[in-house]
Design a protein around this nucleic acid. Structure first.
Ligand code: ATP
Length: 751
DNA sequence: CCAATTACCCACATG
DNA sequence: GGGTAATTGG
């Protein structure tokens, strides 16, 4: 025992060792960037277990599923698989979703409840707004969803909202007096749908713990030791959950860095960490200030930036690592030039000691990824985008998932509406509206209403009723099959029976082909999931479990083959907690980073600065910062100014290069980048995993050629005019007659 | 009811 | 420039 202790404590410095050794009582670790807080948490859990604490009694809450997975596998490499599996570890959302499924019946749900994502919520809110006949300009679904979400994150129920005059008044002032009514209807509809949104996973957990003392007692006993990572980004609901669970034993350890609090937009409250000392008795506070990740130049640059913030806990982050290279800052004529420069840099550096995996490109807004992508693709550099529209949010995937969700939970309103007429079965908006009205009048779920449509006198035609019955029968068959089949088999059956792939194959566009491939990828994902689950003895590898997993998954949770080598692209927010040898931060421009929306308040601007700090401190060796003097926005060229944040980096730590000099550009690369731009912007199928170029299509045809066009079908070329780039062809199509087409745009195949 | 066309948002970040 | 909701003509 003693020898074991020695061996793992050797990996820690003195400051890290102290919080690890503290077993009982409340403690807080304030850790600078790269100072090893993940390491402290990992070793602390190991230390707890080595000291006889049952892994079943440890609850560790992380910020991402990936962080939990990595920590778990690190722990199991230290103490073995058997014990580490029993730790409750995951994000707040995934851990409490599990608990809510156990306790669902207590709060009026079944254990098969569906988890609504942001899109589902927005669609539901949108239909509620329509049903209430509210003005669609003052009641924009997105705005309302955000408002409701932030209410829920502050643990304000519908009733609490109505009895708080500050809240109701402020919504009246912003010309949205019906916000509360929408909130109420939205909540009711979620319950009726046996569904919860992301915020409910926390809100309902609080309700459960508050209203059922025996449940609270049970989980207080269960989780005698609680650890929370990234505590600076917890919101009020999360704070309350931790507080009630830890209240009895007070064995709570929170870890965080106030300088990295960047999620206030989803309710995170930096005061949770700042006031932690006051929440428990005799809080032990530890500080970690030695950075092990980055070079001196990087650490110093980060410090000089964060120095500009007023609201912070004082820290002195330092490192023993080498000075390394100065930070390179580059000014570029355009976003396209900026992107090209990154490709060039990567191609240069990859020759030496780097893999593609050593590079990340970070940006403020997901929309910036497109230009970077185009450039990387053009240089044949493999890349992967994280965030934005994630795999499981793609239309074709959500369509399939909607069928599965409906099979598991008939009351899932949004899934039903999504697929009741996809693929088309002749059930239109009029029919659906009648059903919604019928479901309200009879207080039934939509599915139940359709099921008994014949007897309810909803004013539907006989042919409509037949179509509805066929739909219901199909779902009922799936339900019966689902009892016998695995998640993989039922999905396969759904895809075959609904003929969704046939529907997609109707047109042969690269988009559709990619969609079919994505569906195949989904099936592979389910297979992998089942394989993983097999290891867990009492798991039934059923559909419900898979769906729950999917709802809480992000791009980071999709299994990668270890051999894959690619450059990562992600938002600065997504990069929290990660590290890369070489980091590019792009778009350091006023109004973009810092965002124009942050100028109103010091708090918002300081959060932008923290975001920059997070970005800088992701880098181990090299940091490249760049901006463009012009940029495309909504297809229009706008001019941009250098970001104020660049001035805030101490001059001693930077190397500045101006890439605006046209002669330099020309020397570096021929043909001139300005000619290539046009071509680069074409053929963008961004959201699709497998990107096919336009090269399948012909730009050289001759008079008399028989050709096939994607939309217009077969035809014959009867005349050509114009030169090189702008050849126009007159084509006689069999179906629609003569058409003039520009060859560079037309998707033609010569037959 | 459906497919094609038009209009209108949008891009601040996420589990 | 791109996705989705609304509109229109068949
Ligand atoms: N005592 C140590 N000796 C050597 N390397 C260490 C030590 N502690 C941590 N490291 C290394 O420093 C790096 C940063 O550690 P870690 O990711 O735990 O930091 P962090 O505090 O979570 O960072 P951040 O808050 O910036 O995400 C890792 O590569 C880790 O392996």
């Amino acid at each position: 025992m003693i020898e074991d202790k020695q061996s793992y404590l050797n990996d820690l410095n003195e400051a890290q060792e102290k919080p690890v050794l503290k077993i009982n009582g409340p403690s807080m670790v304030i850790a600078g960037a790269g100072s090893g807080k993940t390491r402290v948490l990992t070793y602390k859990i190991v230390h707890l277990i080595k000291n006889g604490i049952d892994p079943f009694e440890i609850l560790a809450l992380t910020f991402t599923n990936k962080a939990a997975r990595e920590m778990k596998s690190r722990i199991s490499s230290m103490i073995g698989d058997g014990e580490s599996k029993n730790i409750w570890m995951g994000t707040f959302h995934s851990v409490f979703a599990k608990i809510l499924r156990f306790e669902a019946h207590k709060i009026g749900f079944t254990s098969d409840f569906t988890i609504y994502d942001v899109q589902d919520s927005e669609r539901l809110i949108s239909s509620i707004i329509k049903e209430m006949n509210l003005d669609k300009d003052s009641y924009r679904p997105k705005t309302i969803r955000n408002r409701i979400s932030s209410l829920k994150n502050s643990f304000i129920s519908v009733n609490a909202y109505f009895s708080n005059s500050d809240l109701t008044e402020s919504d009246k002032l912003s010309k949205r007096p019906k916000t509360g009514d929408i909130y109420k209807e939205y909540s009711d509809r979620l319950v009726k749908s046996n569904s919860m949104d992301f915020d409910d996973l926390l809100l309902k957990t609080n309700e459960l713990l508050n209203n059922f003392p025996e449940v609270l007692a049970k989980y207080q006993e269960k989780f005698k030791y609680i650890l929370v990572d990234e505590y600076q980004d917890t919101n009020n609901s999360q704070y309350l959950i931790v507080k009630s669970l830890a209240d009895k034993y007070q064995n709570i350890c929170v870890v965080g860095d106030d300088a990295q609090s960047i999620y206030s937009f989803r309710g995170a409250n930096i005061n949770n960490i700042i006031n932690f000392r006051n929440d428990y008795d005799d809080v032990e506070v530890y500080r970690l200030e030695q950075n092990y990740r980055s070079t001196k130049y990087i650490v110093n640059a980060a410090n000089s930036v964060i120095d500009n913030n007023k609201n912070k806990i004082h820290k002195e982050v330092w490192t023993d690592n080498e000075f390394g290279d100065k930070i390179q800052i580059t000014a570029n004529p355009s976003d396209i030039a900026e992107a090209r420069l990154i490709s060039q840099k990567i191609l240069n550096l990859i020759k030496s000691e780097n893999n593609y995996k050593d590079f990340v490109v970070l940006y403020r807004t997901n929309a910036q990824s497109r230009v970077i992508e185009d450039s990387l693709r053009n240089s044949n550099i493999p890349y992967k985008i994280y965030g934005g529209v994630s795999f499981y949010n793609r239309k074709e995937i959500k369509d399939i998932l909607a069928y599965l969700r409906l099979v598991v939970n008939n009351n899932d309103e949004e899934s039903l509406k999504r697929i009741i007429n996809y693929p088309p079965r002749g059930i239109g908006q009029v029919t659906i509206n009648k059903i919604i009205i019928g479901s309200k009048n009879n207080n039934l779920s939509i599915y139940e209403t359709i099921k008994s449509a014949k007897n309810l006198n909803l004013g539907l035609s006989n042919s409509s009723i037949t179509k509805l019955e066929n739909f219901i029968n199909q779902i009922e068959v799936f339900k019966i099959q689902n009892k016998k089949l695995s998640a993989f088999e039922i999905t396969d059956l759904v895809i075959k029976e609904t003929k969704i792939i046939d529907e997609l194959r109707k047109d042969e566009s690269p988009e559709s082909i990619a969609r079919v491939e994505n569906i195949q990828e989904l099936l592979n994902g389910i297979r992998d999931f089942i394989d993983d689950q097999k290891e867990i003895a009492d798991s039934k590898n059923n559909l419900s479990e898979f769906l729950s997993n999917v709802s809480l998954a992000t791009d980071f949770d999709i299994d990668l083959k270890l051999s894959e080598d690619f450059v990562s692209l992600m938002s600065l927010h997504s990069s929290k907690g990660l590290e890369f040898k070489n980091v590019f931060i792009v778009g350091l421009e006023e109004d973009l980073f810092p965002s124009a929306l942050s100028y109103n308040s010091r708090d918002d601007l300081e959060e932008e600065r923290r975001l920059f700090y997070v970005g800088i401190t992701r880098a181990k060796k090299n940091l490249y910062i760049s901006y463009a003097n012009s940029r495309y926005r909504w297809g229009k060229l706008i001019s941009c100014e250098e970001s104020r944040f660049i001035d805030e980096i101490d001059n001693d730590f930077i190397d500045f290069k101006d890439n605006n000099d046209f002669s330099v550009l020309q020397k570096k690369s021929k043909p001139s980048p300005f000619i290539k731009q046009k071509i680069l912007r074409k053929g963008n199928f961004r959201h699709l995993s497998s990107v096919k170029s336009n090269s399948d299509f012909q730009t050289k045809v001759s008079v008399g050629d028989k050709v096939q066009h994607l939309k217009f079908g077969k035809g014959q070329v009867i005349r050509l005019e114009g030169d090189n780039d702008n050849v126009k062809a007159k084509i006689k199509f069999e179906k629609i007659g003569d058409k003039n087409l520009l060859l560079k745009f037309a998707k033609l195949k010569v037959l």
